[in-house]
């Protein structure tokens, strides 16, 4: 995955909330141009914090990147604010959808075009493109987003992000609270957006099975550190990943003492 220059390079960042709570310690990762990268881990491992550090939404939660740096398209993003990230082509779809409840589906989508400077016709075209990926939304375009189903809200949230014509979408927990079939449908669309529109994805997921099936590369976070990373197929084959994240135990019970022996590679020291 190193033949392309990375779109996003996170180098050894440390994130502290409220000046005292250390959430990430030395997280490094890369998203190559045109890739789908999965960020895996349990609740509280630091997936959302990592995404928000990249999208700059951390600022409004009293979180701060205290060490390390984040580069987007080769440029340090330290002094940028969220709307500048969006106009540079990086947008986050937050966990839990966060649609604007009192706006219709179409109005929700149009808010995503706020930074789109292309003019009326460009925005119309982009809207049609979004509708071509989510035909269900077109049918319900005038329904208030507060009243549509969870799956439709997730699609609205992804569609809204697409309206900004991003080169990278940070997708936080798209499977949350959705039926397995819907989750699969959404991942299929993500894959299509990746291959057909060339949008890269950084995906935070607890549903490791699903994420590794669609991603090219994965990072596993535990307690604010990257404990393992590799090609998706390699990760899916790893015994520890199988046992702890995919629920595919090796058969007989093992003593807890014998497990959890990841090779912790400190990539930033290499």
């Amino acid at each position: 995955m190193s033949e392309n220059k990375p779109l996003v390079a996170v180098n050894n960042i440390e994130v502290i909330y409220d000046h005292v709570i250390l959430v990430l310690r030395g997280v490094s990762l890369e998203v190559p141009e045109g890739g789908i990268v999965a960020l895996l881990g349990a609740n509280g491992a630091g997936k959302t914090t990592t995404l928000k550090a990249v999208s700059k939404l951390l600022q409004s939660e009293r979180g701060e990147v205290t060490k390390g740096q984040i580069e987007f398209k080769g440029q340090d993003t330290k002094s940028l604010v969220p709307n500048q990230m969006v106009s540079r082509g990086l947008i986050q779809v937050m966990e839990g959808r966060h649609c604007f409840e009192h706006l219709s589906i179409e109005e929700n989508l149009l808010t995503g075009a706020y930074t789109n400077k292309g003019g009326r016709q460009k925005i119309r075209d982009q809207l049609e493109l979004v509708y071509s990926y989510f035909p269900g939304l077109k049918e319900r375009r005038s329904s208030l987003a507060g009243y549509i189903s969870g799956g439709e809200q997730q699609m609205t949230a992804i569609g809204r992000a697409l309206m900004a014509t991003p080169s990278l979408i940070l997708l936080d927990e798209p499977s949350m609270g959705l039926a397995p079939q819907l989750v699969e449908e959404i991942f299929e669309i993500v894959k299509r957006l990746n291959t057909e529109e060339g949008v890269s994805f950084l995906l935070a997921e607890q549903n490791v099975t699903m994420a590794l099936r669609y991603a090219d590369y994965g990072y596993i976070l535990e307690n604010g550190r990257v404990v393992m990373d590799g090609e998706a197929a390699t990760l899916a084959d790893n015994e520890d990943v199988k046992e702890f994240y995919l629920g595919l135990g090796g058969g007989e019970r093992r003593s807890y003492r014998d497990v959890k022996h990841y090779r912790r590679r400190k990539r930033w020291l290499a």
Binding site: L57, N83, V86, I91, Q92, M94, C99, H102, L103, E107
Partner: peptide, 15 residues
């Protein structure tokens, strides 16, 4: 109107 529904979501889409 988007901001009044959800401050952070509004920021996330670049408002």
């Amino acid at each position: 109107r988007a901001v009044s529904d959800d401050h952070q979501a509004a920021m996330s889409v670049g408002i």
